[in-house]
Simulated assay, not measured.
Amino acid sequence: MDSSDWMKQLLLVGIGTTSLVAEKIKEVSDQWVKDGRIDSKEAQRFVEDVMQQIKVGQGNFESTMERQLQNMLQDLGVSRQSEMDELRGRIDRLERQIRDLENKMWR
């Protein structure tokens, strides 16, 4: 499983968790309105504020997880895609140079 698959799975877990939290927050705020603790506008603001905080936290979590994953892969010696692409380009150039030299030798 490559790093992008792990990241996708982590994000899906985060999205699922966020959905559950949003649902529970909505249920709690609806119950507070029903109990007369707060009015519907306050409940809506409460839900929006909490969801905004979750979105900010989730963005921070995602970027932190991505950095940690990149560091871990680097520590394990796993090359980045850009490094692999650069090496493939260098190999292609070297193969071309070898073919050119071989063609010159046979002329």
Rank of each mutant, 00 (worst) to 15 (best):
Q68M: 13
R99K: 10
K8M: 15
Q9W: 09
Q44Y: 13
K24P: 02
G59C: 03
Q70T: 02
K41W: 12
L69M: 12
T18E: 13
K41S: 04
D2S: 08
E83V: 01
K41P: 00
L87K: 13
R93M: 04
K8Y: 10
R90H: 08
D2I: 01
K104N: 01
W6N: 06
G14R: 07
S29V: 02
Q58M: 08
E83Q: 13
L73P: 01
G16A: 12
R99A: 14
E95Y: 10
F46Y: 13
Q97I: 05
A43Y: 06
L73W: 06
V56E: 11
Q81V: 09
D39Y: 14
F61G: 11
M105Q: 09
K24Y: 09
N60D: 10
E102G: 03
V21G: 04
I98N: 14
I91C: 06
D75I: 02
E42T: 09
I25K: 02
D92P: 00
L94H: 10
S3V: 06
A43C: 00
F46H: 12
G36P: 01
R88H: 02
V13P: 00
D75R: 07
Q31P: 00
Q9K: 15
V56D: 06
Q52D: 11
K104V: 01
M65R: 14
L69T: 04
Q70C: 05
I91R: 11
N71I: 10
V56L: 12
R67I: 08
R93Q: 03
D100S: 09
L11F: 07
I38F: 01
E42N: 12
W32P: 00
V33D: 04
T64S: 07
I38Q: 03
V21P: 10
K26Y: 06
F46C: 00
L10I: 05
I98A: 05
R67N: 07
L10D: 11
L69N: 04
E62S: 13
V47W: 03
M72Q: 07
R99H: 07
Q44T: 06
R37W: 13
M1Y: 13
R93P: 09
E62Q: 09
V33Q: 02
N60G: 09
I91P: 10
T17Y: 14
T18I: 11
N71T: 07
S29E: 05
S82Q: 05
I54R: 12
D35P: 03
Q44M: 02
T64D: 08
E62R: 15
V78M: 06
D5I: 01
E23F: 13
D49C: 00
G16E: 14
T17M: 15
L87M: 13
L101Y: 04
L69P: 00
V28C: 05
S19P: 02
L76H: 02
G14P: 01
S3W: 11
E102H: 03
T18A: 15
R99N: 06
M65L: 15
D100I: 11
G59E: 06
K26P: 00
K26N: 11
Q53D: 14
V47C: 02
M1L: 14
V50A: 14
G16D: 11
E86Y: 08
